[in-house]
Design a protein around this nucleic acid. Structure first.
Lengths: 263, 263
DNA sequence: CGGGAACTTGACGCTTGTCAAGACGTGTGG
DNA sequence: CCACACGTCTTGACAAGCGTCAAGTTCCCG
């Protein structure tokens, strides 16, 4: 089964015209899966969502990969939303323009995570997603995802589950900002990163922040100065060590005990 | 076609375990829709989500109605989530318990709106939903909703659309709290209520707040005193009039211009 | 090696939370 | 029908937290 490669190729909407996206199609009949088969993220990605025993979803879809350089946009606010994206490596921020011209960070996307759900609402992306370091995504056509969900109750369940988990995360975030002072927000942010990284096989104890203090501040509803002060304060209390972007979580339980929102 | 009223009535489960919800199927073949046919909210509700021409979704589902008195819970944090709920009349708040025992308001649900999506994530409700005035909901079994989505691409699309709209709303909320001072939050809250009410056929200009200042404050990340001061301030500036819970929006455009977040 | 971006730290003032007192409305019981 | 009590709301005074402005340091990249 061959597939006209270019018909599925997506061109980046950034000012610079980037990179076509694709690995060339192989001419076997399991197209997607030899690409997915060697992907380090395959265990977390959508093609693994199938029922055990049944053929995996998106088996017949050609899944393009796309390089995105630091600062480039994967898509922009207002673009038509036709794809879901899975982060292969690198990190992204989701931002929306503010009245005064600044950008508000709405979320971060780490390796192994999916993004692009928000665009399902009305077909237009409400946010711009931008790489905060050199990165690569897999591009999953929404039409195919939707078809897979229609064909398998299992996939449908995973899809609605993913969506509602996002919803719950977003609510937690709003509650965090509404109810806590900035030091607690920063502490919770670190714990959150730590957990998400460890779920994907990275160290929960030590990691590098990929984002600036300003981006963290925007996300958490604080200024970059406040973020910096909070990090210093958490370090002074012995919960973490901070050397610029290198974080070590020294006392996760202590941090959790004083800061993490309970059930 | 007559209906044994009591078979549709569900009694509130508040302190006790949730009652079973399904009435026995009747032996006609168009079951749900004579109940929905006379419902004032039918144009907004899930059974209207079908493709034009095709039979509406949940046609064969018995849709129970349930009265909920002021202060009673529809479901509680931790309950298994087996249903979606549609508000027939009255208003609800969605709350989550805080460390210190207080309750944080996560959202409000007005007549004609759906709630219960959040529970899809892991099968357990992350929030308690409580009536803030005497109210009634329709109870839609998730299994049937899911089945309808599996059978019709159209319904699937509406469902994911509804979920991602919630997601976008939640993000906007987080951004609002993160980036604005309290007067702007309160102004935006009023505009938001106004719009949601007018979408359901109520007046956009005049309405009654169904919630206390404290609940608004919890939702917006402010204290009840601050909410009160902001309402007074907005009134002093001529944007609205406020008499306890009676709100009139005098200058919506002015309010929007100074407060509403732009694209 | 130099320039600039990112970060840290300090001083000061605005916004909001906290505490407190009092006004208004509603429901209940005499 | 009135009186009282309670929940809700308003307003004021003060203090704490955080944003803003500013200066100086560290690190990265060309």
């Amino acid at each position: 089964m061959e597939w006209p490669v270019t018909s599925r190729t997506i061109h980046c909407s950034d000012p610079v015209a980037p990179a076509n996206v694709h690995a060339p199609a192989t001419d076997g009949d399991t197209i997607a899966n030899d690409a997915c088969g060697t992907c380090i993220m395959r265990g977390f990605c959508l093609p693994s969502w199938g029922e055990p025993g049944a053929p995996p979803p998106l088996q017949r879809t050609h899944i393009a990969r796309r390089r995105v350089r630091k600062g480039q946009a994967v898509f922009r606010q207002g673009d038509r939303s036709e794809y879901l994206y899975a982060v292969r490596f690198g990190s992204f921020k989701s931002v929306t323009g503010l009245r005064d011209g600044r950008e508000q960070v709405m979320s971060f996307h780490l390796p192994g995570e999916l993004f692009g759900f928000e665009g399902l609402a009305d077909g237009a992306q409400p946010c711009t997603v931008r790489a905060i370091e050199d990165a690569e995504v897999c591009v999953l056509p929404l039409a195919d995802v939707s078809e897979a969900a229609g064909e398998s109750r299992f996939v449908l369940h995973r899809l609605t589950q993913a969506l509602s988990m996002e919803l719950v995360r977003e609510r937690r975030m709003a509650a965090l900002i509404a109810n806590t002072r900035s030091e607690e927000r920063v502490g919770t942010f670190l714990l959150n990163l730590s957990q998400r990284l460890s779920e994907r096989g990275y160290s929960a104890r030590e990691f590098q922040l990929r984002m600036t203090r300003e981006e963290i501040g925007s996300y958490l509803g604080a200024t970059l100065e406040t973020v910096s002060r909070c990090l210093s304060s958490l370090a002074r209390q012995g919960f973490v060590t901070v050397h610029r972007r290198q974080i070590e979580i020294v006392d996760a339980d202590g941090l959790r005990a004083s800061y993490e929102t309970p059930a």
